[in-house]
């Protein structure tokens, strides 16, 4: 579904600061490798989390899958096509770190925004598959508990509600791939738990392929089928851990030995990854 092979992505680094010529700390000739030689496979319909220390290239990888960054080396395929082509068909839903809602639009209009731009994608989809299978905006907003907030403006909502609108905006157009970049990092822990449950409930309903970037081990384990542990810079995959906890988890009381075992394993690996960069 999503395949990444030998991905390298570099940025112009701090020129003259160390590393002239040779490869030191991921810097090559004044360029800085955010990701180097990364392989990843995400099966269709699965929920995969990317976890790792700051600067390990999680967000860069996500942007590359979204077609917002061109690889310097290697390839990224989304549904067997380059991400740019998938994005042009509006098959990629993105939830950024901040809700990024437009303050002059109501909740409903914000969620309708994806349908209003790049309409040629919808026409293509219609020609190919008959009906345009986009989700119903009001329906999705109800599912995330915002059925009463349709005509309110973003500044009238709490941070958690705004992030739910951002989630609904990405999901409403029924993307084949849903990418979330630490979407719950700016809200408090209690709101976070509620948002996780809502994301799970929504996803169990609308099965898309999900990549979820997070800093939280608990979050990764609770949500995912697979947790990808990354280290860097330069960003690379250290381990791929199958969570193997039963679903549905949205309403279930999670915890117990199985979950803690996975959490402990991830924590050890993250500690090792962190020590590898800083030790």
């Amino acid at each position: 579904m999503i395949t990444v092979r030998g991905l390298r992505r570099s940025y112009p680094g701090a020129a003259g600061r160390g590393a002239v010529g040779g490869r030191v700390d991921g810097r090559v000739d004044g360029r800085f490798d955010a990701i180097a030689g990364l392989d990843l496979h995400v099966p269709e319909g699965s929920f995969t989390s990317l976890i790792g220390p700051s600067g390990c290239g999680k967000s860069t990888l996500l942007r590359a899958v979204a077609g917002l960054e061109d690889p310097d080396d290697g390839e990224v395929l989304v549904c067997g096509r380059p991400p740019g082509v998938a994005a042009a068909d509006k098959e990629i839903g993105l939830v950024p770190q901040t809700p990024a809602l437009l303050p002059w639009l109501t909740v409903r209009s914000n969620v309708e925004l994806p349908a209003r731009v790049n309409r040629s994608a919808d026409r293509r989809r219609q020609r190919a598959g008959g009906v345009a299978q986009r989700g119903d905006v009001v329906e999705v907003l109800r599912e995330v508990g915002l059925g009463d907030a349709l005509d309110r403006y973003p500044h009238e909502l709490s941070g958690g509600m705004q992030q739910r609108v951002a989630l609904a905006r990405a999901v409403a157009m029924r993307p084949r791939v849903l990418l979330l970049d630490e979407p719950f990092s700016a809200v408090d822990e209690i709101t976070r738990e509620a948002l996780r449950r809502q994301l799970l409930a929504l996803w169990e309903h609308v099965r898309t392929t999900v990549i979820f970037v997070t800093h939280s081990v608990r979050e990764a384990v609770v949500l995912s089928d697979t947790v990808v542990v990354m280290a860097g810079p330069p960003g690379r995959v250290v381990d791929v851990v199958d969570v193997g906890l039963p679903r549905p988890r949205a309403g279930a009381d999670l915890g117990g030995a199985a979950m803690h075992a996975v959490e402990d394993r991830l924590r050890r690996e993250l500690a090792a990854a962190w020590a590898g960069e800083h030790g």
């Binding site: 942007r63 979204a66 077609g67 917002l68 740019g84 994005a87 042009a88 509006k90 990629i92 839903g93 993105l94 950024p96 770190q97 901040t98 809700p99 990024a100 809602l101 437009l102 925004l113 994806p114 731009v117 790049n118 994608a121 905006r169 990405a170 990418l179």
Partner: peptide, 13 residues
């Protein structure tokens, strides 16, 4: 806002 720009770009607006 850069995040809103990113969302629109991911839709190829």
């Amino acid at each position: 806002p850069p995040d809103a720009l990113m969302v629109l770009r991911s839709l190829r607006a």
